[in-house]
Simulated assay, not measured.
Amino acid sequence: MTPAWYPEIGMSFLKQILVALVTVVVAGGLWISFFPGAPEVLSRWGIDWASASVPERTRQEQAGGGFGQQNAIVVSAEIGSSTINDRLSAIGTGRALSTVSVTPFAAGRLNEILVQSGSRVEAGDIIATLDSDTEEIAVDRAQISLEDANSRLERVQALRTSNTVTAVQLNEAQLAVNNARLQLRDAELTLSRRSIVAPISGIVGILPVSAGNYVTAQTEIATIDDRSRIVIDFWAPERFAGMISVGQTVTASSVARPGQSYEGVVSAVDNRIDSQSRTLRIQASIENEDDTLRAGMSFQTQMQFPGDTYPSVDPLAIQWGTDGAFVWLVQNGVARRAPVTIIQRNTESVLVSADFGDANAVVTEGIHSVREGAEVRVVSGPGGAQPQAAISPTDS
């Protein structure tokens, strides 16, 4: 036997289904009528009849980006341009044009030092001497031997005219003279090397030895710096490798002398990139005529290059989609989507690589209501000033 309340349950369930269907239909109609992208979504689903049933005015309102208005209201910003990789700034270390550590040719006791620290010397000047008594004796002995050989040669030549001596004896006498002359030159060279001379012109540094010290061929007597020009060693990032060449202008300022800058030129460029730091070694030369700069100083070096110019947009204009970054352009009052590649982010701008055509502004606010090809109304132009029509009136 069937209970009497079964028909009542069936009727209640049917009413609930009808109410749910009506709710779904009404919600769908509202979504089709007022959601901005509804016609496109229905078209992709193959439901063209629903899109066709939307009134033309409603579709225009959707394209305008809002309910009851024709065009989307947006704020725009001007598209600028910025140049990057146009300047190289690096810290470098200066050194003298030439630096020589002077050592003697032979060992001995240091007799005399003829220069002081800070003295300017010319190439060939004697700066110190070693004991040379033995070498002086050797020179005198070689001179006596040469005189004796010359006298013997003269006698042999005189006897040769009377055929008293043979040609072989004459040749031996001549050979003895030549050997004696070479022995004299050797003794004089050994004696000259007891004097320590400056190999270059420059300034003498602090002397590490004093007269009376015994020195060897490895002992440093003095250091001489030719600082008529200062050579600065600095390292440039590898992206500048193809832009730097010998002869380019360099501006250098000493950290120890702020406010003063010096003009120089690139004197040498290394032939390879350092694999650890990914930098290229550069040498620049600057004049030091007044001798105010010293080796070992640190310098801030700068070089100018043409650089690379890219469009610059407001950071708020950058949007992201499934295919990457893009911006909304405002061109003749119509919105156009343009994909971009971000090159560099700055505090107040973003440098991008993109084809903007003749568009000169991008949308920064009101982006949610912008659609491709839809007309937009800009209420804040590139200069940031709002038109009077867009400003709310103030009661007087």
Score class of each variant (00 low, 15 high):
P3A: 13
W5N: 08
Y6Q: 14
E8F: 06
M11T: 11
S12L: 15
L14Y: 09
K15I: 15
V22E: 06
V26S: 10
V26N: 08
G28T: 14
G29D: 06
L30S: 07
P36C: 09
A52N: 12
R59E: 14
N71L: 10
V74G: 07
V75K: 08
D86K: 08
S89V: 15
R95L: 03
V100Q: 13
S101F: 14
R109P: 10
I113G: 06
I126N: 08
A128R: 04
T129A: 10
E135C: 01
E136G: 00
V139M: 03
D148K: 14
A149M: 02
A149C: 00
S151A: 15
R155A: 07
Q157K: 14
T161W: 00
T164P: 00
T166E: 02
A167Y: 00
L175I: 07
N178R: 12
N178V: 08
A180M: 12
R181G: 07
L184V: 05
L189W: 06
S195C: 02
I200D: 07
G202R: 02
P208V: 04
Y214L: 04
T219L: 03
T219C: 05
T219E: 04
I221N: 09
A222N: 03
I224D: 05
D233H: 09
M243Q: 15
I244F: 12
S245F: 07
T249R: 13
G259L: 08
S261F: 12
Y262S: 06
V266G: 11
V266N: 02
S267I: 02
D270N: 12
D274C: 05
T279N: 04
L280D: 02
L280V: 12
A284K: 03
R294S: 14
F299L: 09
F299I: 08
V330E: 14
V334K: 05
R336G: 14
A338C: 14
T347H: 13
L351I: 09
S353T: 09
A359W: 12
G373R: 03
A385S: 12
